[in-house]
Design a protein around this nucleic acid. Structure first.
Lengths: 208, 208
DNA sequence: TAGATTGTTAATCGATTAACAATC
DNA sequence: TAGATTGTTAATCGATTAACAATC
């Protein structure tokens, strides 16, 4: 029936890491790698890498390993980043502007096509070639561009409201930079970027 | 013997999330919560929350739940963010400056005390009250301030070099914004912030 | 051929959950 | 007291790893 059997999300979460490592190897001019080499580089067992990949097909050759370019293209296809996604960003404070200026999206499958803020002083500004629009126009703009992915970079107290608005307008994947947990319907995916949680996870181990 | 038995890292990783949720509840004026309420809010089972907390002690009261303020203080102590850590940031591009301007560090246990860049045009600049220093001076500045935590926001090709330098100078926890995997000695902890890996994890599910 | 590495199976390991006695 | 919720145990569930036949 379903071509894709139910693959654990934890496996899906590692694929972008593999993809990033493959990009790094490709940049260094290498053409072939092995599960062992990849694993060493990432601090992951070679068995795990082979097992993860085996969910999707057979990408290597016994005795040889994996052609980096080929595996990379396969992973891009699996993750659906073999084509470009339009992304909106809401909130043009320091963080939002930094994200809008970040050059690392395009060659990895994403293009920021719309930016929003509610501050009249920011509306109309040009940020990295994108004109900042009034947040009031979020629903129609998201629908007009058929945007499915958005990044939220507004202050914490406004994040849930923005979230509700864009979800109503059809957004199905949200990268949330505000340090709060968002409540969303089951079909919407949320990922969080909160540097402080990462720092706090490390201080636990800093017995000094 | 050891007061702290070996607690799974996956549990440690959830504590900052619990702490963040408690802050959110406290901000809304609530004084008491339960594992059930917290779990609903976070999309985690109540059993897991109780199990996680039980590694560290007993913080609740049967029939009542948890006093938010008390549990929060306990978690801060466990994570060692009941005091403030000095943090360095290396790389004053768009992202580094945005991070330096971010106001959310201080009340959660961190203070940026030093900023570095190698670009002469940026050295000497004042960013959010911090004077940008020459990256050449990283080792002595890190030692002088006894800095154990650093954030790397330099272009990918320089990240490993910066990493080696600061690790030699005593840094033991690194938050890496560059989209590459860093190689570090076992005693050094690295966490990664790469928005693209989060986005790619979500596009897998965007069957549209 | 000999050496290397894959893909996969079965075993191990660890994490999550269900359930409940304890007790506020 | 009755109701609620903790902390903890035991069972379940799922993920990782070790090992190896297949084969390049």
């Amino acid at each position: 029936m379903a071509a894709i059997t139910d693959i654990p999300d934890i496996v899906i979460g590692r694929l972008p890491i593999y993809l990033r490592a493959l990009n790094q190897l490709a940049d260094s001019g290498q053409e072939i790698t092995s599960s062992h080499e990849l694993g060493q580089h990432l601090g992951i067992s070679s068995a795990q890498i082979r097992k993860d990949l085996s969910h999707f097909g057979e990408f290597g050759k016994q005795g040889t390993g994996y052609k980096i370019h080929h595996l990379r293209e396969q992973l891009k296809q699996i993750l659906q980043v073999d084509h470009e996604w339009s992304v909106a960003i809401i909130g043009m404070g320091d963080l939002g502007r930094a994200v809008a200026h970040y050059g690392g999206f395009v060659d990895r499958g994403f293009r920021i096509v719309a930016a929003f803020d509610s501050d009249p002083a920011k509306i109309g500004m040009d940020v990295n070639g994108i004109k900042v629009m009034n947040s009031n126009h979020l629903p129609e703009e998201i629908r007009a561009h058929n945007i499915k992915i958005a990044m939220i970079a507004v202050p914490a107290q406004y994040a849930q409201g923005v979230c509700d608005t864009i979800v109503s307008a059809g957004v199905r994947a949200i990268l949330n930079y505000a340090p709060i947990t968002l409540v969303v319907p089951p079909k919407v995916n949320v990922q969080y970027i909160d540097p402080v949680t990462h720092l706090q996870r490390m201080t636990y181990y800093l017995t000094d």
